[in-house]
Amino acid sequence: MEKHTIPVEAGLLLAGTLFMLGLLSVLIRRNIIFMLISVEIMLNAAGLAFIVAGARWAQADGQVMFVFILTMAAAEVSVGLALILQIYHQLKTLDSDAANKMKG
């Protein structure tokens, strides 16, 4: 591929916009599966910022950080989905407000 230049501001603003959308979705949703999806969007946006910074200095460190974020996201989504399964079996709803009482 030929040489081309992408502005760093554009990459960082894309990451910021995606992170803001994920955060907004966490704030306005009550369905816990949607909240989990929004956390994935936010993690992906953070990884995008790492990739942009790594590409700016032509170092592989940003990509290494993305691999770690990917690992963490995979572990987080598996545990989160197991928790969602348990909540749904006990409360019969996906409403996050329904899980506000500790019954032991």
Partner: peptide, 17 residues
């Protein structure tokens, strides 16, 4: 800020790091 010059950082560079 300055722009990002295109450098292909392939899997070998990532693996070495």
């Amino acid at each position: 800020m300055t722009g990002v010059e295109y450098h292909d950082l392939d899997a070998k560079a990532v693996g070495l790091s």
